[in-house]
Design a protein around this nucleic acid. Structure first.
Length: 650
RNA sequence: GCCGCACUAGCUCAGCUGGUAGAGCAUCGCAUUCGUAAUGCGGAGGUCAGGGGUUCGAAUCCCUUGUGCGGCACCA
């Protein structure tokens, strides 16, 4: 038998027979290690202890002390154990796939009856039984024919479909957890007994399409979370509870920002408090855009279908548009219009007015464009995914050789804004050409290269989102995360070669000939609705003072201070601060509690002492300690703090 | 749109196997003038999401519509 060389993490190496398994390697080092071992890392790949090693390799034996492999294996084995438990209780249930995900795993089943919360309890109990039985986990490579024959016999059509999708020539691996078997690429633990029996929980059931395809059957997906020990599980549950407190839907009600109601699903009724945030953000964006060389425009809400047909949206998105038909009795002719779902076709109309020169490019056109999209009912989510929204939209009309510099300029613009708004960490995803697309490969090459190069020049290495670009060009997505870790695309920057063509936009080049401009679609906040939702969750409602709808409450302690409180409010307002007096006949404790819960950044309490000294007692949100300040100082200080970041002088 | 679950006072929630609706907070009134997260007492407030059915009787059981929630699919 041939020999191979294994190199260990400490740098030592050893000659062994080819085909040795990590389990045997561990046994050779120490029987105690072999017992504790859960898997191996072989040349950087995660290896099952039972897989043979055939060539020279760097090897490390993993134990439960190694975070990443331990969690992956625990969750993966839990997925199998759960599927085994389900089939033990309901033998007719068909199994499909069950990958590791986030803090746990899920497994999709095909079963007539829905799983109930009680079922989850029963499954959990069965899983604990399986874990406590400490069954060995074993594996073998099977032939395709044997695997298909096996699943035909046991009646698992989904598994057969999976096998048929695995590329010819790739090994099919079968795993046994005791007497239950599943097709799986592994790796797995040595025994079900290595899974902590008290550190997992089945969290919820949900529908999911087979293979993620909405034309295929809807399966039942059970989600679970799993950890190395009970404390980690508890910490995770606590984290979820904390996150729920940051939910913008809960805070939106508590802070009286907005409401929604049945008659206008997916549309926001902004209350004075919420609208203050909105307009403050909009004013800020308007100043930033103006300073960055944009011209602002405004375009119609209701536009004839002819324009949408020309732009191509009618064909592709008609079902997602609000259609408005005007009756003949009220109009000269029957007209079919749509509420605009986006602003770009209208912006091209403005571009097309008059003859444009290459000297006009790049032309940066911005609009706070109100759009309506008939989003599928199941997609609606608070104010983050709505049917009526306003984008901080913009289109840059430029020449092809300006794409890169305009992209870089935009990324820097966006980064500055995200920084001002408290988002230091955001993901940048780069979506390249999809399978069905418009334009030549040569043009796509150039556009993708320009976006990537600009992103890297901005010091960002984007995550690749293969094939997810729009049909008309590649895009960059700027992604923020909500309270419970769900990603939301906010900013976007897309190259478009198609729309200028379809709507016949041209400019006269230096050569005196007509040329097609390229359009860059870009939005920084995305929509005000979604961005405000994210902002609330990011700050847990404690917005930066310049965005806080109610910035200061001046609270009287006794009614003899009322006049003084009014004077303080007047002084603050004159300094540009949103201040109000709370002169109600309530105890200061009551007022502090109420305004703290309402997330007001500053409470200024005034008793007779403050009146006599012309001071205030300052309490900042989230701090127990108060401090005294002269009236003059606090007005100057709060006036400064409440200034939007782009207007600050210090 | 699809699967599942939910909908009771402005808010948060009780209401067992069907017997005719309840609490706390908020609101309103009265008293209280008080030093940094809830002062006391009293009053008012509900077609139990809408519609239909079963039943002597429905918040409770069934059907249906709507909205919301958790996923999936979608996101120009």
């Amino acid at each position: 038998m041939s020999q191979i060389t294994l190199t260990f993490p400490d740098g030592n190496s050893k000659q062994v027979d080819a085909g040795i398994t990590p389990a045997e390697v561990a046994q050779g080092i120490a029987p105690s290690l072999a017992k504790k071992a859960i898997s191996a890392t072989v040349n950087g790949a995660h290896y099952d202890l039972q897989w043979p090693i055939t060539d020279d390799a760097a090897i490390a034996i993993n134990t439960m002390q190694d975070d990443a492999p331990a969690l992956e294996l625990i969750r993966h084995d839990l997925a199998h154990i759960m599927a085994r438990a389900v089939q033990a209780i309901w033998p007719d249930v068909k199994v499909t796939i069950g990958p590791v995900r986030d803090f746990g795993w899920f497994y999709d089943f095909d079963r007539e009856e829905p799983f109930t919360p009680e079922d989850l309890g029963e499954i959990e109990a069965k899983m604990k039984e399986i874990i406590n039985a400490r069954d060995a986990v074993t594996t073998e490579v099977w032939s395709r024919a044997d695997a298909i024959a096996h699943y035909e016999k046991t009646g698992e059509p989904y598994k057969i479909e999976l096998i048929n999708r695995i590329p010819e020539g790739e090994d099919l691996r079968m795993y046994w957890h005791g007497d239950w078997q599943d097709l799986c690429r592994g790796p797995h633990l040595q025994s079900t007994g290595q899974v902590p029996a008290d550190a997992f929980k089945l969290t919820h059931v949900a529908g999911a399409y087979w293979l993620g395809d909405s034309s295929r059957p809807m399966l039942q997906r059970i989600y679970g979370v799993g950890f190395r020990n009970r404390n980690d599980l508890k910490a995770h549950m606590t984290m979820l509870e904390e996150a729920a407190k940051r939910d913008h839907r809960k805070l939106g009600r508590e802070m009286d920002l907005y409401h929604m109601q049945e008659e206008a699903p997916g549309q926001v009724f902004w209350h004075p408090n919420g609208w203050t945030i909105y307009t403050e953000l909009q004013d800020y964006m308007r100043r930033k855009q103006r300073a960055n060389g944009y011209v602002e425009v405004n375009t119609p809400q209701v536009v004839d279908r002819k324009l949408w047909e020309a732009s191509g949206h009618w064909e592709k998105y008609q079902d997602h548009m609000f259609i408005v038909e005007v009756d003949e009795e009220h109009a000269r002719e029957k007209a079919v219009n749509a509420l605009k779902p986006m602003n770009c076709p209208c912006h091209v109309q403005i571009f097309n007015q008059g003859l444009k020169s290459y000297r006009d490019l790049p032309l940066r056109m911005a609009e706070f464009g109100s759009c309506n999209r008939y989003e599928p009912s199941g997609a609606l989510h608070g104010i983050m995914r709505v049917r009526g929204f306003t984008q901080d939209d913009g289109h840059i009309f430029c020449a092809e050789d300006q794409i890169e510099s305009e992209t870089l300029r935009y990324i820097e613009f966006l980064s500055g804004i995200y920084h001002d708004l408290g988002f230091e960490n955001f993901k940048v995803k780069f979506s390249d050409r999809p399978e069905t697309r418009a334009g030549s490969d040569e043009v796509w090459d150039k556009a993708e290269e320009a976006l990537l190069s600009a992103t890297r020049k901005a010091g960002i290495e984007p995550q690749l989102n293969p094939g997810e670009g729009a049909f008309y060009g590649p895009k960059l997505e700027f992604v923020l995360t909500d309270a419970i870790g769900r990603d939301w695309q906010c900013g976007t920057h897309q190259v478009d070669f198609v729309l200028p063509e379809r709507l016949d936009a041209t400019y006269i080049g230096a050569d005196g000939e007509k040329h097609r401009p390229v359009m860059l679609h870009r939005a920084t906040l995305g929509s005000f609705e979604r961005f405000i939702g994210i902002l609330i969750e990011e700050h847990a409602g404690k917005l930066p003072i310049w965005l806080a709808p109610r910035q200061v409450v001046v609270a009287s302690i006794v009614s003899d201070t009322d006049d003084y409180c009014r004077e303080v409010v007047t002084a603050l307002k004159a300094a540009g601060v949103r201040a109000e007096a709370d002169l109600r006949n309530e105890k200061i404790n009551y007022k502090v509690r109420e305004h703290s819960l309402a997330k007001v950044p500053y409470i200024l309490a005034c008793g007779m002492k403050e009146v006599e000294e012309r001071t205030v007692s300052v309490r900042r949100l989230g701090e127990k300690q108060t401090f005294g300040s002269s009236l003059e100082d606090i007005v100057a200080r709060l006036g400064r703090e409440a200034t939007p970041p782009d207007l600050r002088r210090d």
